Computed example of a mutant assay.
Amino acid sequence: MHTEAGVFGRSHELSRRGHEQVVFCEDDKTGLKAIIAIHSTVLGPALGGTRMYPYASESQALDDVLRLSWGMTYKSAAAGVDLGGGKAVIIGDPAHDKSEELFASYARFVETLGGRYITAGDVGTNTDDLDAIGRYTSHVTGRSAVAGGSGDSAGLTALGVFNAMRAGAESVWGTASLAGRTVGVEGVGKVGRALISLLLADGAEVCATDVNEAALQRISQETPGVRLLGSVATAPVDVYAPCALGGTLTASSAEAIEAKLVCGAANNQLANPAVEQALTERGITWVPDFVANAGGLIQVAGELQGADRATVEGDVRGIFDRCRDIITAAKAEGIGTGAAANRFAERRLDAIPRSI
Rank of each mutant, 00 (worst) to 15 (best):
M72L: 11
T248F: 02
S57I: 05
V232A: 10
L228E: 12
V183L: 12
L195C: 12
V312G: 05
F320R: 14
R135I: 04
F290Q: 04
Q21L: 15
V110Q: 07
G31P: 10
A147G: 03
S15N: 10
T157M: 05
G296E: 03
R116Q: 13
Q269H: 07
A351W: 08
A46Y: 07
L32G: 11
I257Q: 03
V123W: 02
I118Y: 05
A271K: 00
S69Q: 06
M1W: 09
G334L: 06
G80K: 05
Q60S: 14
G124M: 05
T137M: 05
G155A: 15
G314A: 09
A340S: 14
G338A: 01
A34S: 13
V123E: 04
R17M: 09
L159H: 04
L62W: 00
R108P: 10
G18E: 13
T30P: 08
G124L: 07
F320I: 11
E100M: 04
P224R: 06
R166W: 08
S105F: 09
T234F: 07
T285V: 15
A176W: 07
C263K: 02
D128T: 13
G85A: 05
R181L: 15
A274Q: 14
E100T: 14
P236F: 07
E303D: 13
P273W: 02
T248L: 08
G318I: 11
T41A: 01
A345Y: 01
L47N: 02
A158P: 13
T311Q: 15
F320V: 12
R116L: 13
A167R: 04
Y55L: 00
T337S: 06
K29G: 09
C323K: 00
G192S: 12
F109A: 08
P288A: 09
L304Q: 08
D325G: 01
Y117D: 03
A147T: 03
L14I: 15
E276S: 10
D315I: 00
E346Y: 10
D308H: 13
A147I: 01
R317T: 11
R116T: 11
G48Y: 03
A132R: 12
V226S: 04
T73M: 06
